[in-house]
Design a protein around this nucleic acid. Structure first.
Length: 122
DNA sequence: CGGCTGACGACCT
DNA sequence: GAGGTCGCCAGCC
């Protein structure tokens, strides 16, 4: 499905407090599961701002251990950080620690079943 | 204002 | 599966 304004509303923009909103959604992802930048964006009602979700996580202070940023991967089921970067290695390590297997390619094993489904909200 | 740049995503070869 | 293209949104020259 191609992107178009009507999917998320032409007037909806990313404003102050956006980062915290992203963190709140990510914090809901259970240990042992993963979610995607796009899914987080969709959960916020803005499908088109997947990139901004990544930006929010990039700006996450290391001390924020309450936000499981390592559980956020891309729509192809792969970790987006380079395997040779420190953050990339940390992400893989944290996932393995949760029994989530990461292939050399960065691909998460059993992505479909590991992918978290957000509960429908009223 | 134009151009470039992302922890992105959908599509097409 | 592995690339490349194009769309999207902000921020930064």
């Amino acid at each position: 499905m191609p992107y178009s304004p009507e999917h998320h509303g032409p007037h909806r923009i990313v404003g102050p407090g956006f980062f915290e909103q992203v963190f709140e959604v990510v914090a809901r992802v259970p240990k042992g599961h993963v979610t995607t930048y796009g899914d987080v964006a969709a959960e916020l009602g803005m499908r088109s701002i997947a990139r901004k979700v990544g930006h929010a996580l990039a700006g996450l202070h290391p001390d924020r251990t309450d936000v499981p940023w390592h559980r956020v991967i891309n729509s192809q089921g792969k970790v987006s950080r380079p395997a040779d970067s420190s953050s990339g290695q940390l992400q893989r390590q944290l996932l393995i620690r949760e029994d989530v297997e990461v292939a050399t390619s960065g691909r998460i094993r059993d992505f479909d079943s590991r992918r978290y489904t957000y509960p429908k909200r009223p």
